[in-house]
Every structure is written in structure tokens, then in C-alpha cells.
Amino acid sequence: MEITIEKTTSPKTKPDQNALGFGKYFTDHMFIMDYEKNIGWHNAKIIPYQPIPLDPATAVFHYGQAIFEGLKAYRTDDNRILLFRPSKNMERINITNQRMCMPDVDVDFCVNAIKEIVRIDQDWIPSAPGTALYIRPFIIATDPYLGVRASQTYKFMIILSPVGAYYPQGMNPVNIYVEPDYVRAVRGGTGDAKTCGNYAASLKAQERAAEKGYVQVLWLDGVEKKYIEEVGSMNVFFKINGEIITPALGGSILPGITRASVIHLLKAWGLTVTERKISMDELYQAYQSGILEEAFGTGTAAVISPIGELSWNGENIELGKEVGELAKKVYDTITGIQTGKVEDAFGWIVEVE
């Protein structure tokens, strides 16, 4: 399938790259292609960024068949453009597709589509430290039909947004509220799928955390509300007595690409990494015993986000206001690989030529 290209005749004014925030600005173009059950994916094109006309009965509005991914393009000091493991995002989008009864996409074609639109809008890639071009592929159900069933038509789109740090405090440690009542997901649900409804369901707890002065929510398991799962936008790691522990994937945790990369990196450094259940009780006991050394989150948006404090059942687990040694080393290495400053020994980087 070829991609037809229509370039804008009215380029936008680019924002100050030192005041980007996250997800507030959008580039000049978007990628879009259609799916029909008897045709498959077709009509792939890059067009000027614009609204999408949809019927009020469109299925996505009523039954939530919508999924997305997130990755970034980086500009190097020598002006090359790099992507970080884009095939993994497209492989994961198909895992989500299968859970949400949506059609698979061709991984290689979609990676090429990402490269093509990034190439066209490459002037939007910021170069200031800590900035990147965020890439948002997503799929929505488009049948104008109110019966409850999987749609037979879909749109796949890619939009781009120049971004700075996800958290306003940047790499400084964040304070996190451990949610005692609401749950994010249960095994057998959609917790391991990157579907939009998961994020809508998280907003209430996020609001409550914000009211208490916390930046993010740490979710516990949906059955016993005992075992740590993940932070709202990140997987989570704890260094306890020299061992790095991260909750095991079990169907209710998103299998993060940054998470997998960090595990691979830590093992390459010869460190002990364990994927297993870990309860808040165990974590609190480790804190009281003085063996909880560090905690940090991992994700595309923030890359590595050190945790400075966890609020749990009226108790505060305080890890300090300074970035931990391990979190700093992981952050410097991952972002160094992403921006071409550190050698990519793992074959993670794809260059947009």
C-alpha cells in the first residue's frame, strides 16, 4: 500500500521549544488510513492536520472501541532523527487490537508511516535538552451504528506533538498517592491493553490525588487491594537491599516498552532484577528497616521518574528530594541512547533518513 501525501499550504507558527509542556501543540500534518471488513486497511495518506468529520452515531462515542500508542522522535546533536523501538509499539498495538476486537495492522507498514510523517514534519522536532517529538498512533471504531458489537470500519491515525517534560518538575522526584479504594484493572479485564477506557476510569483517583497534593496515583491489585501494580502513566521499580523489584505482568499491568528496556539494561549491567508480586506491606516494612533504597517509574512520556514520596493509609514513605543514583544512571543511559549520545548496544534505535 502506498501513502499519498498532501502537504499543507498554511504552515503553523512553531511554539517556543523551551516552554512546550506536554501535548499542547500539534504539527502541520497527520497520517490517516481506513479499514473496511471486506477490503482491509486502505486509503493511506498524509494530509494537513485537520478535524475529523464523524456521524453522531459513530461507535467509538458510544462503546469505547479506541486504542492508542505513544513513542517519540529525537533530534541528535549532529541533526539526525532517531526513533526508539517503534516496532515494539506497533506489535503492542496489535495485542491491544486483539483484546478490543479490532483489526491488526501491518507492523512494518506502520513503522514506515511513522517515519514518513516524522520526515515531513521534521522541522517540528525540538532540540532543547529534555524535549522530543511525541508520536501518537491511535485507532477508533467508525461504524454509525448503535447496536452493541465490534465495529466493521475503523480509522488509524498518527498525530505529532513537540513536547517537553511530562511532569512540570522534570527529573526531580514526584510524590505519589497510593489509591485505597478505586482500582485500575483486574486480571481478565483490559489492564494489559492500551485502550482509552482504562485512562478514563483512572481520572477519579487522579483527581483525588491532585486534591491531596500528589502528582500521580499508584494502583493496587483489583481483588485484594494489597499488591502493587503500576502508577497511572508508568510501570514502577523498587530497589530493596540491592535487588531491583518490579511487579510481574499478570494480565492487569501494561507491558511497558520502557519497562522492558530498563529490565534488559539493568540485567546487562549485572544487577539482580526480579519480576514478582510485591505488596505495600512489604514495601513499608522495607522502608522501616532502612533497606528501601530507591523507587522510580518508567514510561514513554517521562522515561524515568524518581519517586520521592508514597502516601499510603496515612503513612508516608519518604525517599528523599534527590534523584537516586540508579534512577539517574538508567535515565542518562536510556535518554543517551535515544538522542544518540550513548552507543546503542541493543539495536533499539531506528533512524529516520
Rank of each mutant, 00 (worst) to 15 (best):
Q169R: 10
V163H: 02
P137K: 08
G170I: 12
I135V: 14
T153E: 10
Q152H: 12
Y167F: 15
Y177R: 05
Q169C: 12
S161Y: 00
R136A: 07
P173E: 10
P173A: 11
V178F: 03
D181R: 07
A141S: 12
R149Q: 14
T142I: 13
P168C: 09
Q169K: 14
N175R: 15
A165K: 07
R149K: 15
I135E: 02
F138Q: 13
P180K: 04
P162D: 11
P168G: 13
I140A: 13
K155V: 04
Q169L: 10
D143F: 11
V174E: 00
Y167D: 08
I159F: 05
A150Q: 05
P173L: 14
A165G: 05
V183C: 08
P137L: 11
G147N: 10
K155C: 05
A132D: 10
A132C: 15
Y145S: 10
G164W: 01
M157P: 02
L146A: 10
V183I: 15
G170A: 14
Y177A: 08
I159H: 00
P162V: 07
Y145A: 12
F156L: 14
Y166R: 03
P137R: 10
G147L: 08
F138H: 12
M157D: 01
D181W: 04
G164M: 11
Q169Y: 04
